[in-house]
Amino acid sequence: MATGGRRGAAAAPLLVAVAALLLGAAGHLYPGEVCPGMDIRNNLTRLHELENCSVIEGHLQILLMFKTRPEDFRDLSFPKLIMITDYLLLFRVYGLESLKDLFPNLTVIRGSRLFFNYALVIFEMVHLKELGLYNLMNITRGSVRIEKNNELCYLATIDWSRILDSVEDNYIVLNKDDNEECGDICPGTAKGKTNCPATVINGQFVERCWTHSHCQKVCPTICKSHGCTAEGLCCHSECLGNCSQPDDPTKCVACRNFYLDGRCVETCPPPYYHFQDWRCVNFSFCQDLHHKCKNSRRQGCHQYVIHNNKCIPECPSGYTMNSSNLLCTPCLGPCPKVCHLLEGEKTIDSVTSAQELRGCTVINGSLIINIRGGNNLAAELEANLGLIEEISGYLKIRRSYALVSLSFFRKLRLIRGETLEIGNYSFYALDNQNLRQLWDWSKHNLTITQGKLFFHYNPKLCLSEIHKMEEVSGTKGRQERNDIALKTNGDQASCENELLKFSYIRTSFDKI
């Protein structure tokens, strides 16, 4: 039985969820670079991206490699990797027998973001014989899940209580170790020597080791999670996991709180800001991140802002960003909400898709409305799209047979046209069989910064309504002859009103 693990408890099935942008060198404390989270699957090609990484700022997932063999891993080693800020997950990587050479110096898994409450997941690794993470000293947050690894031993010899604050939620089941077939031998045991430290858990006094050649490092209890030197002297209180010299914040392997210019500090002093819960960055760093993602459509890219001495992905609820200094300031009234469309555009074809934009005031991208039916549609669209004030790209209304009016965009005031449909149009209306009105132009103002209007096959939309939009939106004169079809717009509506004058002759039985 794995020490510190839980057996036999019912657990939810383990679901495996399925960018080499360097964020800056980590400095003297770390020998390499800070790398983003990685999802490495199918083959070993991307694994080489770990070569210079000291910190993975995010998670590391290595999974679904069915053609790899043990010899493929023999020359692979990433000794610079010290810390993973989120979680480490391995799933069905064939041929991998140990992690001792792959990650010989991995010391800390912070667990800032977890995989279903777990910071370390080893699942269905069919050839893994031992973990071998002999320098792993601290899992700051989260638990361990090690399950269905039929060859995995050296679990009962690990004292997880020396690595985690609590072992109650560890789930370590259905491994070879369960069948008591392992016969784990710690260093020196074969020669009758006791080389590794022994600890007591559940009444068992057991030597602690990761492999037959690597003991588990056990520091004096007084050192807590700070770690200790090879001689057993406690590291500085700002260290986490390990250090090369005692009581020196510049000799830590990793930091308990924050890293700044080669030393570990309790908090980031001005003019620095907390970033990702582990390091200090200056304003320029946060500003660069903001600008890199301002026009990016890459998933996970955030326009970072500053709030409460932190550089964070977005302002919290009730705050909006001051564009001059990136500071989050309290909103006066309802907060603006910028919604970034991942692929640059979004099609609204149902109430469900409209709900995804609920509360958005600025759309960074283009909207395509293609709704053919739905219950209580006008009210639903207004509830979900009615706060949109600005669209950076274009607005396209296409084959939306259920629409009679666009009044559900009740606050839309600006279409920038930074991206144009077919390279020309910022407003595009095609084949809307029941569209009769755009907006009530006596109450609604709309500016279209650039781009043209396109109207074709809107049989109940009168040309007068379209011409009014040209005047109000500032697009009059931009359109070419064929942009607004004269014969297919309003051709099934009563669009022309003329005053009919009647004269009559009164007659009676005795007068003409």
Rank of each mutant, 00 (worst) to 15 (best):
C335K: 01
F205P: 07
E71S: 09
L102P: 01
G262R: 04
N149P: 01
S213V: 09
I56C: 03
G95K: 06
G132Y: 01
V305Y: 04
D169N: 13
F285K: 01
C311Q: 02
F283Y: 12
S213F: 00
L114W: 02
T194F: 13
E57Q: 10
G300E: 04
D247S: 03
N42A: 05
G241P: 02
P269R: 00
S98R: 02
P270S: 11
A190W: 12
R297I: 08
P220T: 13
C280S: 00
M137N: 11
R208V: 00
H212R: 10
C215N: 14
F258S: 06
L50R: 02
N309F: 08
G188I: 14
E57N: 10
R162D: 07
N117H: 06
I122D: 01
I222N: 09
F116H: 01
D86H: 15
R298A: 12
F205I: 05
W278Y: 10
I139T: 02
P271Q: 09
L131I: 14
E57P: 00
D248C: 02
D72G: 06
L64W: 01
P220F: 02
T140P: 07
E33H: 09
P336R: 07
R208K: 14
L102A: 03
Q245R: 13
G111D: 00
I139F: 03
C228G: 00
S98I: 03
I222L: 05
P104D: 00
K310L: 11
L76F: 09
A156N: 15
S166T: 15
R41H: 02
D75Q: 11
I62S: 00
I158C: 03
D75E: 10
E314S: 05
R69W: 10
D159M: 04
P316F: 04
D248H: 03
N117C: 04
L332C: 07
K80V: 04
A230H: 11
F123G: 13
C315A: 06
K176D: 13
T189V: 11
D75A: 04
V144W: 01
R162K: 10
T211S: 12
D177C: 12
P197G: 03
V305M: 12
T189C: 12
C286V: 07
S161C: 07
D177I: 15
A190R: 12
R263N: 08
H214C: 14
P246C: 10
G227P: 13
F115L: 11
D288Q: 15
Q299M: 05
N43C: 01
C280M: 00
L332Q: 13
I158W: 04
M137P: 01
D165C: 14
C293G: 01
L63E: 04
T211G: 02
R145L: 10
E97A: 09
W160G: 01
Q299W: 03
S225K: 08
C35S: 00
N179H: 12
V265F: 05
T199Q: 10
R263F: 13
V55N: 02
T267F: 15
T221P: 09
H127K: 05
N42W: 09
N117K: 11
M321V: 15
G37F: 07
G262I: 03
N42I: 07
R141E: 11
T211M: 04
L152G: 01
F115G: 01
H307W: 14
K191T: 14
E130S: 08
P270L: 10
E51K: 01
